[in-house]
Design a protein around this nucleic acid. Structure first.
Length: 260
DNA sequence: ATTGTGGCCTGCCCGC
DNA sequence: TGCGGGCAGGCCACAA
């Protein structure tokens, strides 16, 4: 699914649209328009204009319009971004291997004949105009150790739930969080505020490494834990059966031996 | 305020 | 062979 790594890939793909005037909007799926947005507003905001910046905060892709407006794109679990009919990601875990234009939920046509399309089989993504960027926490890829400590401090919520709370820390999805905690040797069910200074440093170091490593490898599904994230899976580090349980409302796999 | 739960959406996969 | 239930999880509304 698109987590922070995939959305960063989409952001780079979206840079190919910069400076190209928009000719038309395809927004027939009103479910996909969020925050009370209607098609006419998109027409008024985008047609004849062009994008001057492609930014990302967590899993939210932000396209800056040349008049200061901002188009926000969310990809849910199965959304992909196609620019000029070329996909930014070849394949998504948990998404279909098929590739059906019927799943195009939103699109822009450019004056030059090219296009930007958000293709999302499960319709969990969405489009928003001028999204509240500041409602999101700091970006997980660049967050510092001190800021990460602030995210966790004083919380009794499970560590995993806190790390995935986009309003506290933006970008972590289920797979990346399991991989990070597995590498850091921290139990996902620990109260978030219970980490000591050593554990916090370990978490921060591993968070950064997981994002760097898996980005190079090609996505959120390329972690060392991934192959064992199944019923009956064994810990790749010490061979123990992994615990499968719901933490923070998400299916979680973790090793009860080395994750403490 | 914080934390937890359920539902939304749809395609796929397994077992019958 | 077809069918139905379970599952995937990002996000949001709502409850406690």
């Amino acid at each position: 699914m698109p987590e922070i790594l995939e959305v960063e890939c989409y952001r780079r793909t979206a840079e190919r649209t910069l400076g190209r005037p928009v000719a038309a909007i395809q927004a027939d799926d009103e479910w996909f328009l969020k925050g009370g947005l209607v098609r006419a507003e998109l027409d008024a905001a985008l047609v004849g204009r062009s994008f001057v910046g492609a930014r990302r905060r967590g899993k939210l892709l932000l396209l800056d319009v040349d008049d200061g407006a901002v188009l926000g794109l969310r990809f849910g679990m199965t959304g992909r971004l196609l620019v000029d009919d070329a996909a930014g990601i070849d394949r998504l875990e948990y998404s279909s291997d098929r590739d059906d234009p019927a799943w195009d939920r939103f699109g822009l046509g450019f004056v030059d004949g090219g296009s930007l399309v958000l293709r999302d089989p499960r319709r969990l993504g969405g489009v928003e105009l001028d999204p509240d960027e500041e409602a999101l926490g700091p970006d997980a890829w660049t967050v510092g150790a001190a800021a990460l400590g602030h995210v966790l401090a004083g919380s009794t919520a499970p560590l995993k739930a806190r790390l995935m709370d986009q309003n506290r820390l933006a970008g972590m999805g289920n797979l990346l969080t399991d991989e990070t905690l597995w590498r850091a040797g921290l139990a996902p069910v620990r109260p978030a505020g219970s980490l000591d200074a050593t554990e916090l440093r370990r978490l921060h170091r591993n968070l950064r490494r997981v994002l760097d490593d898996l980005h190079v490898r090609g996505g959120s599904h390329t972690g060392d834990l991934q192959a064992s994230r199944r019923r009956g899976g064994l810990c790749p580090r010490d061979g123990e059966p992994l615990v499968r349980e719901s933490v923070g409302g998400r299916t979680t796999y973790w090793c009860p031996v080395h994750q403490r």
